[in-house]
Design a protein around this nucleic acid. Sequence first.
DNA 1: CGAAACCCTTGACGACTGTCAAGACTTTCC
DNA 2: GGAAAGTCTTGACAGTCGTCAAGGGTTTCG
Lengths: 219, 219
Amino acid sequence: MAGTTSTVSGTAAASSRTRRAPADKHDARRNQLAESALTTLGELGYARTSLREIANNSEFSHGVVHYYFHDKLELIVYCVRYYKAQCVTRYDAVVSDSTTAEGLLDAFAAKLVETLRDEAPMHRLWYDLRTQSMFEESLREAVTMIDATLEEMIWRVVSRYAELAGRPTAMTPSAAYAVLDGLFQQALLGHLVGQPQALDQIASQVHGLMPLMLAPAPS
Amino acid sequence: MAGTTSTVSGTAAASSRTRRAPADKHDARRNQLAESALTTLGELGYARTSLREIANNSEFSHGVVHYYFHDKLELIVYCVRYYKAQCVTRYDAVVSDSTTAEGLLDAFAAKLVETLRDEAPMHRLWYDLRTQSMFEESLREAVTMIDATLEEMIWRVVSRYAELAGRPTAMTPSAAYAVLDGLFQQALLGHLVGQPQALDQIASQVHGLMPLMLAPAPS
DNA sequence: CGAAACCCTTGACGACTGTCAAGACTTTCC
DNA sequence: GGAAAGTCTTGACAGTCGTCAAGGGTTTCG
């Protein structure tokens, strides 16, 4: 199991300067552990994930976690922030590539269905952590920051949708995020429980809801 | 609220035959333990709640739980169902007492704020359990049943609101529940995190959203 | 009264957890 | 080469968990 890491770093930039990368290598290990942790967390949830299980899903032993992270909470928070960077730009292509309101709506709904299908474990982990922050104060800072980032992400979609439709928005960013998040969470639950129509349903629901976020057409 | 019938029958016939109530007393103890468990669960969350802690919040010792429940999961599921009975009728008075659409909307928003303020621990417990059901299959049956019941509860409000407004509904029960649940969950999180404006915000957001659930006025 | 059923406490079990110290192994650098 | 720094494993610690058996206490009823 062990020793594989040395082969990786050895085969990579062995020619020029294999050394002289203390902080970089340190961060690389932290990210590597974070990815193993995120896999385990998405599989088992926050409560049932132990440091030994995280280490089992990596190529290291359980003691190494405490070498790179002060304690379990620091690892979790690091994971949450690491995860954030991956999902914030999820809909940026949708916003920039669309030229009509209907096209943006279709692309947005399709992207929702796609991430719901392909990244369900990560999404349920996010909802798990956000709910745990209702009980555990130490999670709140990271959760609040990510929640704000997600709200901004959604608002970029909604405001661009309004711009393309030529109609002003009729909701606050906060409300728009909340209602779309409610639909998404319901679809995620339905999808995980095994309802086959959950994916189609979220698409049609979003198609029905988004026009309501704009002021009525002047007509 | 749930097992009130058995309690009543037990106290009523106490004079004539104090005995002959094995199932009734058994159920009363189960409900008593369920209430202690719900208090603890609302305080600590599902993950950090142990049977010993539940027993500490009651007047019994930790071993008694296993006398009335086969295992921890049976207690939790029993608690969830017990909790359901208390919240399903929450908005029934709002529906039956309102005579105008505006009056219903005001009363509904006020009730949302009230339960958000007074019963926050129970609400975060519900969201905790619903999220845990995304990971733990054994919780799904009870959670799915309660979720459907809540959706019906919300739909009674929305459809009555449409009736009073003289306009047809423009959303499915599923979508109406999802968007309102999203707003509620956001407000709960904000309230628990200490945002003072969370309660006022949910009221105004609901006032803005509910009219959008109806077909546009004929004008 | 005395047997029997019921209720509850106590204490212990094996398993699991986060944490951390001790040491082996590897890499870096003079 | 050899000291020094960095990296990782191993093993153990104190604690908590769900579970359950053994045995008092209490109540019920013939």
